[in-house]
Write a protein that binds this DNA or RNA. Structure first.
Lengths: 295, 295
DNA sequence: TCCCTTCTGAAAACATAGTTTCAGAAAACA
DNA sequence: TGTTTTCTGAAACTATGTTTTCAGAAGGGA
């Protein structure tokens, strides 16, 4: 029936899974992901153990083994073992390569190397106390939160806005057009939090609005790069993300990481209220039929 | 009976074998040597296979498993598997402390662990050929590029749009409001590239617009999660990013990584034109005095 | 909405793996 | 060499793993 996979012979199991991934069904994908999680060990136990670990039934496992072009589960497992033998006995394979099926000079690998290194440096430079302090600020419902980004970082501000908005009220995203900023400023109150994103090619206008906000007693949280935006002197809290990568542009990945970590922190700290809000949102989304519930 | 080996708990199998080697009988030594030859793979098959490979009987194998301090052969094998897991599974991503000045249970460290692991899995599942193919497509100036994201992923679409726009012409970002989509569709031509972002809680409307675009001969590139959006079947190219993190929400960090890698790939491939464009943009930004040059 | 197709897992059927028994073989000792 | 002890593997047996079947569930299409 599924003999369309005759060209699969002697391919890596991971490769095969990847190749057929979009022909797999829901339960099969769930299983595929479990197999790829700590590959290949998870596939070396019994079919029952694998089924349980992935939360599917044993027939599903057996079926997928056939779908991948094997005669049955034992054959699938034999292939895993022989792959392992090839990997373990080859000391070269122990080196850290991110995308194992690409040469290390491939942009994917070079990029991954740099980004992980950037993450390393960023976190070591970041004081957890300051992180916690910011999370704390954002948890206080009486403080309004305002977000603003620059030309490139506006998307990040938007992303953070989308999530904060799900968790609490009084969150606003300031539009990038600087001519309308004065209107936003007069709506800011003492004790409000103003989150600004500014990376190199620092934008002058941002500095101006930050100064005005600071004068009104607004607490400024700055997300910037390793060199530090000039408006650091107006800010109470700073995050410095490393952004240099092998490209003509800078990478926002580490900055997005910090944003998500902050969001996770806030969510963690206000678990009760946020889950409550989320459930309500869930119902709302259901109702508008815009979104379909995930299996 | 052979309970003299009670101190063996949680030792490596190879260690245990060496420890009691001189208490082993002839057939058992023969077996021991087979196990130690390409360790540990040889021990991961069936007891029968191992017996045959070492030229002894199955009872001998079972007996030795007990002699080494295990309850039986399956227990022996489980130990081998768990050793393997510790050895093979990426030592880098496992329990590394990212922010050294925070406890490893701090959300920053937990989050970093997971994201790096996600990056790992994502890259191993990603075929570099498909990556290159997408980069290739985006380099062809005659193809128009259209971008669209969902509720959460719109920011990512915007980010990619901002960068692609700097590099080439004919790039458009489709607004999130689905009522206006038909207007965008009629402007799409055969051979155009349509980049869609869709992660879990997959949005139905996206599927509809994708179908319509596919009918017009538009090439669809999909950024989705590890489970795969249902519109995968309409798309020619797919990126599956791992998005699960210790939070109530999913993480877009790995997806942003992929986006940036694609952007870097395009920029790399079209170096001459892009640098030319960038210089012109540079002059333009200078002129509007919106941006200040770095340092 | 209904119908049809596809997917899924419980349970039965089946196959293989693992253990125990036991008689013969090999070694150890006198 | 004879006696005793220990070792070994064929075979029977038991446990566990794997596949098949099938009915209900979920999803897609009209």
């Amino acid at each position: 029936m599924t003999n369309t996979t005759s060209s699969n012979d002697s391919q890596f199991v991971s490769q095969r899974i990847q190749d057929c991934f979009d022909r797999l069904t829901r339960a099969e994908r769930q299983l595929a992901n479990t197999i790829l999680d700590n590959y290949p060990v998870s596939g070396l136990g019994s079919i029952t153990a694998l089924a349980e670990a992935s939360g599917v039934s044993t027939p599903t496992v057996a079926r997928m083994a056939r779908k991948l072009g094997f005669g049955g589960f034992p054959e699938f497992q034999a292939q895993l073992r022989s792959e392992l033998q090839a990997t373990v006995s080859n000391p070269m394979a122990r080196r850290e390569v991110w995308a194992q099926n690409a040469p290390d000079t491939h942009i994917l690998n070079r990029f991954a190397d740099t980004v992980v290194e950037n993450l390393h440096h960023t976190l070591n430079q970041q004081s957890p106390e300051e992180f916690d302090a910011v999370v704390d600020l954002l948890c206080q419902p009486e403080r309004a939160i305002h977000l603003l980004g620059g030309r490139i970082t506006q998307s990040l501000a938007k992303y953070m806005f989308t999530h904060l908005q799900m968790m609490r009220s009084k969150v606003s995203l300031i539009e990038p057009n600087s001519s309308s900023w004065t209107h936003y400023i007069i709506n800011m109150n003492k004790g409000d939090v103003f989150i600004i994103f500014d990376v190199r090619r620092y934008e002058r206008d941002l500095q101006r609005i930050a100064e005005m906000a600071a004068e009104r007693g607004v607490i400024i949280v700055l997300f910037t790069d390793q060199w530090g935006s000039p408006l650091g002197k107006h800010s109470q809290h700073r995050f410095n993300a490393r952004i240099e990568v092998p490209s003509a542009w800078d990478s926002a990945t580490v900055m997005l990481f910090l944003i998500e970590a902050v969001i996770a922190g806030v969510q963690d700290k206000t678990w009760d209220e946020t889950t409550d809000r989320m459930e309500k949102l869930e119902v709302l989304f259901e109702h508008t039929k815009l979104f379909r519930k995930f299996i």
